[in-house]
Design a protein around this nucleic acid. Structure first.
Lengths: 340, 340
DNA sequence: CTGTTAGCGCATTCAC
DNA sequence: GTGAATGCGCTAACAG
């Protein structure tokens, strides 16, 4: 309650020892008599004393903080990923600084607008789709960097195998007996990352392996895009019996159109998403899970490892995806699929 | 790219001035010749120099950082609220430190496990439902505190008027012509905050004002709870024509049961949620929006105000809620409601 | 308007 | 095993 929070000197005084002893104890450094150690601990507790990372960092050069940079904080994915990162950093007693870059990213200097230099031990970027130039600018701040959701050669990265994800999803639909499988994706102009490209490629590869011709449509991004795309598919002379969407948002838009049109899922059309969005469970949507929490946890631990020196700063970790089977996919009517 | 990041001395040297002049310029302090100011800026830019908040904080006593404490990071609400807080703090050039307390909260000492003292200028708690004792322990760290989603007398708080929210929702259903309106809530034993209580009270008040008897059921929390509760309601001799849920998660569970049972929404039963969860739009669920982004923004700005001294540290801000009309509510069949 | 001086709270040499 | 000096990078009083 005192307005002047206790300092190390206060603790030293109270414990009847010197500053350095307190420092040693509180850092867990060796070479202190057990009895003295206990006394110091006790004094610190009584004063609710906590070491100022500010001051200790000044001398050690380590801040005890890791900056996490995200484009947005609102989309479901980021909260979950941050949760994993947070848990991993907490294990190593590191604090998490979160920067939402958002639209300001357009303003060229965002990498320097952030007080990173000297204020952070490492930087984790999440789904930032950094250009090589931006990467270099971040290199410039002189701290280790870990990229999440992006695979950059020579830099620590954690990402999922998007290609395998959609390939597996396509296989799932093929196994059910579908052959007219359409793909709804985002428009090429809006691709910020390799992710969109990889997902499309996975689908195409899956189709090709089965000797089928890929059939993909791209409208806008987001739910509306899904609505538009599904509208187009439903207007086709011979509509697909199964639809795979690049991400759940698109699938949800598609689902809405299907509901409104009275087309039954999965009886008439099977629908499959990607991401395992929160709302996918609500819609009983079969989807591909990318375990964002695990991604975050892995990225966080990798960061700790790089700081420790126990992990290389160019390690790449590819996380597996997993199909979550729900009610929105089934064999087409009259098919010879697995389930018939 | 140099391994030893530039310090203020380097800038001073490069600009041919003294340390204090550089400090003044970089802080935007008055009393520097425009020409000199430019020169210093230039030198700093060239060296990609950024002031170490660590070092400056050591002498000013301000860290330039605000800690945000959340129980969890995964639920949709927190990402959105954090986004608002982040934007508000960024306006004031404050960094955001995020602590996910989670289950560790059970371990008594969480308020002290966090390195808050001396490491943060203010603390924002989001939906933490702090006990008076926990509040006091946080007071102890000696920095201003702002509570979000909780109304604590004497402490800066930002929260929504839950009572008015459910009262308004109930009125909406009444206006449509419903009289058999049931309420699905969480179990009293699981109420952590006043929020659950207030929402129930708002419903009860709305019903009472219309001369109707409240009818509420509580099963588990979460989607499952909604399923169970709706199951019970559907098994009633005379089922309700409208159902209001304490939050969208419950409504989603209820919606699922209705779909599975072939009960049409809104034709047979109107369903209404609370929170405007992401997935509510997908289900076309009428709900009550509590604008979490605005809550975060407001809380962030209030925090800045308290730090500035322009806001009182016991200000209370009550945020309005708003009904989001979608397809899940309509007049009961054969009613004389507004829409008939 | 500018430079000099003295710490902020702590970790880290070194002596003892 | 412990204590006394030194300086991390910076701001805030001062002096010029």
């Amino acid at each position: 309650m005192r307005s002047q929070p206790a300092s190390m000197r206060d603790v030293a005084h109270r414990a009847g020892v010197s500053l350095s002893t307190v420092s040693r104890v509180l850092r867990g450094a060796p070479g202190v008599a057990p009895e003295v150690r206990r006394r110091v601990q006790h004094a610190a507790d009584e004063l609710s004393y906590v070491v100022s990372r500010n001051a200790s960092g000044l001398v050690t050069g380590r801040t005890g903080r890791v900056a996490v940079i995200v484009p947005f904080l609102q989309p479901w994915f980021f909260g979950v990923a941050l949760s994993g990162i947070s848990d991993a950093l907490r294990e190593a007693d590191l604090d998490m600084l979160v920067y939402q870059v958002g639209e300001t990213r357009a303003r060229e200097g965002w990498t320097r607008a952030l007080p990173l230099r000297r204020n952070t031990d490492a930087v984790i970027t999440v789904s930032m789709d950094l250009s090589e130039e931006e990467c270099q600018r971040l290199d410039d701040v002189g701290v280790p960097m870990v990229l999440v959701g992006q695979c950059a050669p020579g830099r620590a990265s954690v990402y999922i195998d998007d290609r395998a994800g959609t390939a597996g999803a396509t296989q799932h639909l093929l196994n059910l007996g579908h052959t007219r499988i359409a793909y709804i994706g985002s428009r090429r102009e809006e691709w910020s990352s390799g992710s969109s490209r990889h997902r499309l490629e996975g689908y195409e590869a899956g189709m090709a392996a089965a000797g089928l011709t890929p059939w993909s449509v791209s409208k806008a991004t987001g739910r509306t895009g899904g609505e538009l795309a599904m509208g187009e598919l439903l207007s086709d002379r011979d509509p697909p019996t199964a639809v795979l969407a690049e991400f759940d948002g698109l699938a949800m838009g598609a689902h809405r159109i299907l509901r409104r049109s009275g087309v039954r899922v999965p009886e008439s059309i099977s629908l499959m998403g990607f991401d395992n969005h929160d709302a996918a469970a609500v819609l009983d949507l079969t989807t591909v899970d990318q375990a964002p929490y695990d991604i975050g946890l892995t990225a966080g631990r990798l960061t700790v490892g790089v700081l420790d020196g126990t992990a290389r700063s160019d390690s790449h970790v590819e996380m597996p995806t997993q199909i979550i089977l729900r009610q929105s996919t089934a064999s087409p009517r009259g098919s010879r699929g697995l389930s018939s």
